[in-house]
Amino acid sequence: MMLRGSARPSGTALTERQKIAWLRLIRSDNVGPATFRDLINHFGSAEAALESLPELSRRGGAGRAIRVASVADAERELEAAYRFGATFVGIGEPDYPPALKEIDGAPPLLAVKGDLKAATRPSLGIVGSRNASASGAKFAAMIAREAGAVGYVVTSGLARGIDTAAHRASVETGTIAALAGGLDRPYPPENVGLLQEITSGAGLAISEMPFGWEPRARDFPRRNRLIAGVSLGVAIIEAASRSGSLITARYAADFGRLVFAVPGSPLDPRCHGTNDLLKQGATVTTSPADVIEGLAPLSRDDLFSRLDMEEPPIEERRSAPAAATARTAPGDSDRARIVEALGPTPVEIDDVIRHTGLSASSVYLVLLELDLAGQLCRHGANLVSIVSGE
């Protein structure tokens, strides 16, 4: 099976002014992807949302003024990207990965470097052990090579071992390297040359982190989330019981992606995680054909084409001035009812709306206030909880 070439996805390019405003908003304190989306949905544009951040965080109970990224901050980061040969792609723009934009809390902006066509082609994720066996690395390369030959881009995390083998085997056909730090701070250092091969050929490097950001341990699960989000399916090869690759597999399952797992010896600790995935229902994978045949139905029913054509989940619009929004903000008694409905246990936002009997717009606005004040935890799947005071 050879994938049909897909047309360039639809979308609207951001203006330079909008891109600066988007970059300022996502780099401001307490603004994550979900908060960014809700702010745009409520205020209509990043510029309007930026004006309202200080007042929103004050009403949410912030103990100090929120840091709002400045125009100069955003311009410096844009300039750093351009000097590095990179750019930023917004979630509603044509070059944003179609599968990624469908996940809950997709990054509003991606820093990208390389061949942008790779971002909009169907992708297979391949991840696994950093201390891979020779046979594990060989099998990862086999899957990557055959998937690339039929038209898939291979996405991985640039790590040692399985990731490296998958990237090297698909440099010529197209591979995406998802980074945990800024694009200019690849990890591990020994794969800097590999990253240069990827971005100078048919591949692409992507990151949601700022330029200059050194990756920390807690940044790698976000990188794993990118891999799962970009891909239609993920193949796991040699993952230990507490491997980061299992985080990728969990995200993939949450996103409705296919999870392929390669069985291994029960005596090899590197295979305990993949064997557990098989017990949980992952697709048994003993040849590259298992992966390609498993992904084939997605191509046959044009899933990827439908993703291309769907409306972007974040779109700027003309809206009322921030002052008018402030006049319609919930009163103190309504705000208190919403806060009382929250607790340390995650709850669906729809349940908060039903429980309080207040309008959805009022509930979402108060949740934004709490979020920007650092008083709210978002758990994905529309679940929120209050930050414990302990």
Score class of each variant (00 low, 15 high):
A80Y: 04
A81T: 03
Y82L: 08
Y82G: 05
R83D: 13
F84Y: 13
F84E: 08
G85E: 14
G85R: 11
G85T: 14
A86I: 11
V89T: 05
G90L: 04
I91G: 04
I91P: 00
I91D: 07
I91V: 11
G92F: 04
E93D: 10
E93S: 06
E93I: 02
P94H: 06
P94I: 05
P94L: 03
D95P: 11
D95A: 07
D95C: 10
D95F: 13
Y96T: 11
P98K: 01
A99E: 06
L100V: 06
E102I: 01
I103W: 05
I103A: 07
D104P: 01
D104H: 07
D104M: 02
P107C: 12
P107S: 15
P107I: 04
P108M: 02
P108V: 00
P108H: 02
P108G: 03
P108K: 00
L109Q: 09
L109M: 13
L110A: 13
L110Y: 13
L110N: 11
A111N: 05
K113D: 08
K113Q: 10
G114Q: 06
L116D: 10
L116T: 10
A118P: 09
A118Y: 02
A119Q: 06
T120Y: 08
R121D: 14
R121Y: 15
R121S: 15
R121A: 14
R121W: 15
P122H: 09
P122E: 12
S123A: 15
S123D: 11
L124M: 09
G125I: 05
G125M: 01
G125S: 13
G125A: 11
I126K: 00
I126F: 04
V127K: 00
V127P: 00
G128N: 06
S129V: 05
N131Y: 15
N131F: 14
N131L: 15
N131Q: 14
N131E: 15
A132Y: 08
A132K: 07
A132F: 11
A132H: 04
S133P: 11
S135F: 14
G136V: 05
G136W: 02
G136D: 05
A137M: 05
A137W: 05
A137T: 06
K138T: 09
K138F: 14
F139L: 02
A141Y: 02
M142N: 07
I143E: 03
A144F: 11
A144N: 12
A144C: 14
R145I: 01
E146R: 10
A147P: 10
G148L: 00
G148W: 00
A149T: 13
V150K: 04
G151V: 12
Y152N: 04
V154R: 00
V154Y: 03
V154E: 06
T155D: 07
